[in-house]
Design a protein around this nucleic acid. Structure first.
Lengths: 187, 187
DNA sequence: AATTATTGTGCGCTATAACGCACAATGATA
DNA sequence: TATCATTGTGCGTTATAGCGCACAATAATT
């Protein structure tokens, strides 16, 4: 049930900040009686109330209505596994899988010499970061190729076709971060 | 206003399917009077009602509360400069400076052997990512040290004291991303 | 023109979200 | 022990979400 998810999330966020109901009420401008009822699943809050709560907690609204994934406010998640996936022309592995709170994911790529990989446009508003770890990499963005060496970075809008190619002599390793547009900024 | 977004989205989805209010009411089990009020922004729906609407339209709930259009600036920014800054015990340079849209920044750090760097708690809700590029790194989080080797990653809540230390024999290079909580304003 | 659907909106009613306040339970201090 | 502060919950009231139904406006039939 949706109310269960909201209740758990709210309680978890409040507890992790060590806020009392009174403190949370002051931050969100929602009465502590109502906050208590929501946490006890005795009330199905209005979207306007949820909005005030999210705003008071400085959180995107969506994390309140999503099942508590890896969000856990205080836990650290480490990944040592080198889960390497093979593609036709490049190898990659997941550094950080998609997180609904941060709305981003991160990969490590390995592209062999004389290899090119083209990527279709992502969803509107997606921004991509490239960090070259070693080797030389060329990025196709806005119809032109840009050369990046080890240590170089590039940030571009990924909602149009783009590509990666390695015209060097040794393999290139680079990381990339995909930032998906965050939910709701209303004005 | 959030109600404006919901109203536009609902109306758009209904119109695109050429559903009447009666049809939409039948699909969602929400009275057509209420659907009409929501579209006219005369009512701030309950999260339970929004859920029924999303289900009836076979849509994820989040798309109802997302602004329909997200613009994309088509500029790519590259940084080649190696602006290295010196600190007492570790060197770092900026990979991506803080961006108000993404609310994150990224650094590359270089920590010499037998060096320890302690960091105070960041702002509430800040999440930090660590990606070890080379060498071995120990992270102090939740009162305990965790060992990371090249290729390992760690994500943790940075709103409490934490630290980095290098107990290996060669220098360690690691990247870190600071995710600041997205602050939303509404009126 | 008159009739018949089909559209969306207005009205009254009920259920409940949301409020402020008071209280009880727990812990902390003297 | 008594006193004070802080926790969360229960109660009575008000505001409003949500319902069914009826009506008005439009268009499409006869």
């Amino acid at each position: 049930m949706l109310n269960t998810i909201i209740a758990k999330n709210l309680k978890q966020f409040r507890r992790s900040r060590q806020w009392s109901l009174a403190k949370a009420a002051a931050m969100t401008k929602v009465s502590k009686a109502m906050l208590g009822q929501i946490e006890r699943q005795e009330s199905s809050p209005t979207i306007a109330t949820l909005w005030k709560i999210a705003k008071g907690f400085h959180l995107p609204l969506s994390v309140l209505i999503e099942p508590c994934a890896l969000r856990s406010d205080s836990l650290a998640t480490a990944s040592h596994e080198q889960t390497i996936c093979l593609d036709s022309d490049l190898q990659f592995r997941v550094l950080f899988s998609f997180d609904p709170l941060l709305c981003c994911e991160m990969f490590s790529h390995q592209l062999q010499p004389d290899r090119t990989h083209l990527s279709k446009a992502h969803e509107l508003g997606v921004i991509e970061d490239i960090i070259v770890i070693s080797g030389e990499l060329e990025i196709l963005v806005d119809e032109s190729w840009q050369l990046l060496s080890a240590g170089d970075t590039l940030r571009f809008s990924a909602d149009k076709n783009h590509g990666y190619r390695n015209i060097g002599k040794k393999e290139v390793i680079f990381h990339n971060i995909i930032h998906y547009p965050k939910i709701v900024t209303c004005h």
